[in-house]
Structures are given as C-alpha cells and as structure tokens.
C-alpha cells in the first residue's frame, strides 16, 4: 500500500467510516494473525488476541500521528499485547520432538533431512523466549525490515540484529540437542 493510500485510509477511519476500517482489517489481518499465532504458544488464543489488536488499533487511530509506518505501529501493538499475555496461559510444548535424532547435514536422504529440519525448526521457534519469537516472526516470516523492527521496538538496529543472531543460535542449539540415550557426536578440539 502506498503512503498516500495509507494516509487516506487512516483519515477515512478517523472520520468513523466503518467501510474504511474494514479495509484496514482486511489489509493487515494476515500480518497481525501470523505474528500473534507465532508469538503466543496457545494457538486457540490467536484469533481472540488478533481481534484485540484491531480493537486497540481502532481506539488508537485518533492518536496515531503518522510519524511511523502503519505496519510498524501495528507491530508495536502486537508486541505489547503479546507481552502482556500471561505466561501461565501458555500451553505445554510438544514433547514429541525430543524423540527425534539431532539434525545431521549430508545424511543419506538430504531431501527427507531438509523436510525434517523444517518441521523441527517450526516447533523449535515455539520454544524460543517470547521476545525472540516476535522478532523472528516479524523478520523472517513476514519480511519486516531491520529498520522497521528497530523503530517499532525503540531499539538500535544493531541490537535488533544481535537479538536475531542470538535467536538463530538458540534455534541451532535446540536442533543440535541429541535425543536421550543417543551417542555424543564427536567433537573436534575446542
């Protein structure tokens, strides 16, 4: 959506046009729902929370000054709302993953290994701390730029990159975890 079209849409929403707000919801529901679903651990809460995000947007639009892009502002609302979600509501994580062997590159069936890696990665993301989950979801799954993430989170861009590197290192460490009882892989001199 171009800047002009976005400003026009916001102006129409502020005038109380229900049709304009419906357009806004249609425009951003994919982003909001994907971010919320990836950030919270209980998928059954995703729809309710994503709707709550849009209610906050509706209440907040009269105060939106337009200094940041609308998507950046919406991302910040998602982050704040997910952060306020009580951790006790998180459902237990899928323990089935622990039964699988650690990922090994160049195995006999690389295609199968890749698909397995994708599945395990999908689950490992849910085990990341919430602040890393929302960053990974924003950057890698929804294609948000470092600059927009930094602006939304009020962090320097370098810090955003460092957090993303740490998140990926954590993911690697989770995927490297050997299954219980399996042989320790040989390690080179450290």
């Amino acid at each position: 959506m171009s800047d002009t079209a976005e400003r026009d849409l916001i102006a129409r929403c502020r005038q109380g046009e229900d049709g304009a707000f419906r357009e806004l919801v249609d425009q951003y529901k994919g982003l909001v729902f994907a971010l919320v679903a990836r950030t919270i651990r209980d998928p059954s809460r995703a729809e309710d929370l994503a709707q709550e995000v849009f209610l906050k947007i509706h209440r907040g639009l009269p105060y939106f000054r337009g200094d940041a892009r609308l998507s950046t502002w919406i991302y910040r609302i998602v982050v704040n709302l997910c952060a306020s979600e009580r951790p006790s509501r998180d459902v237990p994580l899928d323990a089935g993953d622990e039964e699988r062997p650690a990922w090994e590159p160049g195995g006999p069936d690389r295609a199968y290994g890749d698909v397995e890696l994708r599945d395990r990665l999908d689950k490992a993301i849910r085990r990341l701390p919430a602040h890393y989950r929302v960053l990974v979801a924003g950057h890698y799954l929804r294609g948000m730029k470092y600059e927009d993430l930094a602006e939304a989170l009020h962090l320097p861009m370098g810090t955003v990159k460092t957090h993303l590197h740490r998140a990926k290192r954590l993911l690697r460490e989770m995927l490297e975890e050997p299954r219980p009882g399996s042989e320790q892989r040989t390690a080179n001199s450290e």
């Binding site: 998928p43 890749d114 890696l117 994708r118 890698y140 799954l141 990926k168």
Partner: peptide, 16 residues
C-alpha cells in the same frame, strides 16, 4: 545447520 535454518525460516508455513 545455520544455512539450513536461514533457508527454511522464510519458507515456514504462515498461520492465516
């Protein structure tokens, strides 16, 4: 493994 993660992260299924 890191390259595999980089390759797959943008391709993971997105909830709709």
């Amino acid at each position: 493994l890191a390259q595999g993660i980089n390759r797959w992260l943008p391709q993971l299924p997105v909830d709709t």
